[in-house]
Amino acid sequence: MLERDQVAHVARLARLELTEDEADRMAAELSKVLDHIEAIRSLDLEGVEPTSHVVDVVNALRADTPHQSLDPAVALAQAPEPTAAGFGVPSPGAAAE
C-alpha cells in the first residue's frame, strides 16, 4: 500500500529522521492501518457535509485589550539556546554539507 519512497517523503514533511529499519517497519505498519481504514472510502457520502467541530458555536472573539506579557527571562527559561537576541537556532541558510 505505502511505498518506501512515500514513507520517506512523508517523514521529510513531518521532520522525522527515520532509520532504514524504522522506515521499513513504518511502511508495513502504516499499510496495515491504511488497509483497514480504506473501507470508509467505499461509503456513499454524497452530499454529506464534513464535520470539523461538533460544538455549535460561532464568533468566539476577545476584546482587543492588552494583557501582561511574560518577562523575557521567563520566556527564554526553557530554551535550549537562549541568547540576548532571542531563541538561538542554526541559520536556515547555513547548510551542513
Binding site: 520566556a75 541568547t83 532571542g86 531563541f87 538561538g88 542554526p90 541559520s91
Partner: peptide, 12 residues
Amino acid sequence: RIHSADRSAVDF
C-alpha cells in the same frame, strides 16, 4: 549580538 555566522535568533 549573534556571534557565529551559522546561528540565528528568533524574536517573538
